[in-house]
Simulated assay, not measured.
Amino acid sequence: MVRTYIKNVVKDIDAKDAEKAQAAYVLAVPVIDRMADKGIIHKNKAARHKSRLNGHVKALKTAA
């Protein structure tokens, strides 16, 4: 589930669509947090994914 949401954000980033990437990121964050709370992924890994995705989305918004 986490991989699917992350792939959706990455797909929108690769398509250079800032609005879709931001929307996909907003949907992905609660899923990533939920999986970290359940112990499926480590909390630091969840934070790393969120940070990297957010960095890419911000860079896409400033480039546009």
Rank of each mutant, 00 (worst) to 15 (best):
V2T: 11
R3K: 15
R3S: 14
R3T: 15
T4F: 14
T4S: 15
T4A: 15
Y5N: 01
I6H: 03
K7Q: 15
K7W: 15
V9G: 00
V10E: 10
K11L: 12
K11G: 07
D12L: 06
I13Q: 00
I13T: 00
I13K: 01
D14M: 13
D14E: 15
D14I: 11
K16C: 12
A18I: 08
E19S: 11
E19D: 13
K20G: 07
Q22F: 07
A23T: 09
Y25V: 00
Y25A: 02
V26H: 07
L27R: 11
P30F: 10
V31N: 08
I32Y: 02
D33H: 06
D33P: 04
R34W: 14
M35Y: 13
M35V: 09
A36M: 05
A36Y: 06
A36F: 07
D37G: 07
D37P: 04
K38E: 15
G39T: 10
I40L: 13
I40Y: 14
I41E: 00
I41A: 01
I41F: 09
H42G: 06
H42W: 10
K43P: 00
N44R: 11
N44T: 08
K45V: 03
A46G: 02
A47R: 08
A47Y: 04
H49P: 02
H49I: 05
K50E: 03
S51D: 10
L53G: 01
N54W: 02
H56G: 06
V57A: 03
K58W: 08
A59L: 14
L60M: 10
K61A: 13
K61N: 12
K61Y: 08
T62I: 14
T62S: 14
A64Y: 08
A64I: 07
